[in-house]
Nucleic acid binder design. Sequence first.
RNA 1: GGGUGAUUAGCUCAGUGGUAGAGCGCUUCGUUCACAUCGAAGAUGUCGGGGGUUCAAAUCCCUCAUCACCCACCA
Length: 975
Amino acid sequence: MTMDKTFDASTAEARIYETWENAGAFKAGANASRPETFSIMIPPPNVTGSLHMGHAFNNTLQDILIRWKRMQGYDTLWQPGTDHAGIATQMVTEREMAANQEPSRREMGREAFVQRVWQQKVKSRGTIIGQLKRLGASCDWSREAFTMGGAAGDPDAGKGAPNFHDAVIKVFVDMYHKGLIYRGKRLVNWDPHFETAISDLEVENLEVAGHMWHFKYPLAGGATYTYVEKDEDGTVVLEEERDYISIATTRPETMLGDGAVAVHPSDERYAPIIGKLCEIPVGPKEQRRLIPIIVDEYPDPDFGSGAVKITGAHDFNDYGVAKRGGIPLYRLLDTRAQMRDDGAPYAEAAAIAMAVAKGERALTGAEADTVNLVPDHLRGLDRFEARKKVVAEITADGLAVMTNSDDPRLGPKPKLKKGEEAPPVTQVPLVEAKAIMQPFGDRSKVVIEPMLTDQWFVDADKIVGPALDAVKDGTVKIAPESGEKTYYHWLENIEPWCISRQLWWGHQIPVWFDAEGNEYCAPTEEDAQALAGAGVALTRDPDVLDTWFSSGLWPIGTLGWPEETDELKKYFPTSVLVTGQDILFFWVARMMMMQLAVVDEIPFHDVYLHGLVRDAKGKKMSKSLGNVVDPLEIIDEYGTDALRFTNAAMASLGGVLKLDMQRIAGYRNFGTKLWNATRFAEMNGVFEGRVPSSDVPMATATVNKWIIGETARVRAEVDGALAAYRFDDAAAALYRFVWGKVCDWYVEFSKPLLDEKAPERAETQAVMGWVIDQCLILLHPIMPFITEELWSVTGDRDKMLIHADWPTYGDDLIDANADVEMNWTVALIESIRSARAQMHVPAGLYLPLVVRDMDGAARAAWDNNETLIKRLARIEDLTVVDAFPKGCATVPAQGATFGLPLEGTIDIAEEMARLEKTLGKLAKEIGGLKGRLNNPKFVESAPDEVVEEARANLAAREGEEAKLKDALERLAELG
RNA sequence: GGGUGAUUAGCUCAGUGGUAGAGCGCUUCGUUCACAUCGAAGAUGUCGGGGGUUCAAAUCCCUCAUCACCCACCA
């Protein structure tokens, strides 16, 4: 057997993964040798397409933890699955249908469409699972779940996966009957593209360029008042008679639904007209509506004119004011955000509204939906079209607030060319160009409208308490800790959670209505019928549940709840949730609330929130920017292990992760390095006729003792790092050990010892075999493929590496003497190499070495490691001298001064410069150390070990300084 | 407007009280039988600015600046 020069990831990975799978290596409880369990629920990817780098990152970290614990003998479960992702999946499917010129959703009808989405689900699920396998994810695939598993149309229903649908429905019914879920007409965020309500979290507020218009609302009956404006000192700056109240708005089309104008109670400017009526300056002239001027705490007197139009049905703030003031709510838009085109003609609606405004009658509940105050000529228009028309009409009517054309609020004046005269100042409508925050649907990217509709809500306030307490009292820990603050902030200000969506893809709400609108909530139609009584005609609520309602039940749902399965007893609560910090509220908080509300237990003990993957420039990866990196492309080029190692190394707590291809290549090289170290061992007979054992081999040679101690160190580092979710520290420690210790030094040191004639050959072979085994074991969670491959070629094993025993040895393997001696040896070799390079000694040339003032320890260290030093520093022999010969380059060491005789070739000036440079550095260090030690306060207050360390350091530095000064003097004499 | 975090070598980032590190890049040298996806040697920092606490500050406190993200209803 001879190994290739490099690892061929492209062929080996698939083969190895298949071997693991066929052996059942990932199954829950596989390799368990102890009772403790360790379980992770995968954050289920959406069945909308394929996985991106963020998923690759997220799943690598989970796999590292699972593999690590599995090797430690824990009873592990990594639960896989996917999320139906209601709105996103419906969108993707519809887009694909349009591209394929299939019939539209509405043409197909609900049942057929849902079937069509199931096809999309099957396709996407296959892609995703394939990607996870390429990534090496060691999930228990036999347990794969789906957040809509068992729902109508599921082609896999009854094939053994948990019936997630039944569990979700049961939770809804239970929560409904406990009064935690209710239906109500409220203002919700409405997505006009998907024609559904969405939750607050699905809205992203973006700053866009907008306009603020200023309009006059004339007082009823031509009434007037004296408008007085004062500055901060109370000086009157403006006093005029007005027959209107000025209002600012960014959405003029909503004026049609105004129910009042509000001012702050302390605003003296408007005190004379409180309680009076004013006219909405739009609509057919003879039928313009009057609305009252009211007071409310909401308007800010310092903003705009201080007066706010109240459109309760189309603005969240106004809704609050309207509720407080009993102002009627008039809906203006239909589900597609076009001006309503239903109900009686405007004249009739306006008459009703007028009567309401005058207090002659109240608006009935039903009328809120039927009264359509959109003037006939605007009906059916798009909201933005209507806006233009409204603005134009008001302006034409002379009711826009006018201003000079050089008003600074209108933006910078155009630059005048030489000789050009400034245009005359004229009166123009005041329209301020303004950056405004506008809500967009995070999926549809269209402007969201607040809309008054009937929706289902979870009374989050009632279930939030335990979720807060569990984190506050430390039952659940969030890493990094800053996540806890964010978590508190959101949960402490939680709003009712709108859980109904006007979609077709999802869990249909288990509520039926009779003709009077009475609700019957039950798991099945039969049960609902039983509640309603026989013969009562029922229709089911067409809405479906927010996808997060079901994914909020992921931990218990995947384990078979409500049945008390063995897995539920064993693996719940789960050990840790590994997820991106972006879904802390969407998912983590919801799981906390839901699990605690349903089974009265926390869903997981730890939450590890990682950063978000960005491109090399730090930009968010998005399809529209075209900077999305497909993890499979990276895997094809560099191999899975390189990608995984990069992911681990990037995973420091918090922040943004920038993906850098050069770094991935570097870690691919790291794998090659490991491969070649193993290849070296193989070529030196390390694995021939070997019986692999986890026992630490006997070692007599210093080098062997030393590397065993270093192995013990890195094992402790890796365990400590992984226990703290410091994947980056674990990766860095392994990198330093494998490359910096094993490859750079141990392999080199071992060469003479592995000589056919060397007495240490057998021992060194045994130690090297063991060290490589340890490297493979410790690296396996991060780099599973290359390590498993090397495991199989380096011995005849009882178990695959994936099930190998994780080591537990400790500091007792560290031999202090070997440590000191090897450090001395390494330092000497480095110093000699450095001197040689700087003196331009040809790399291949062997030089003699002289030494003087050598103490006993240095003598012993030399004698023990002479062969190694000579070989690695290119030295032919050592002569002890009393004084260095002419033309010698000085190499100081602990307990000795070495010299490289270079007479004839040495450049005295260069050597002096070299020594002086080193002396300069030493002097700086010595100065600092002396400064500290001469300060009595330092000696007094610093801990003893710090003082001791400083003293020892000073002594060593001074010793070296003396040697170099001495050498420098001699050189000067010669020069 | 509120909150959180960041600012360290050319680049990407570690480093929570003891005098600054890694990888990449860069410079010079190298075909010794594990590896050129390599080896050896080297250069590079007022740790964002200012102030404070301390024997000692990249690290703790205050402040300013810039950036990023999250949350939020300024018409």
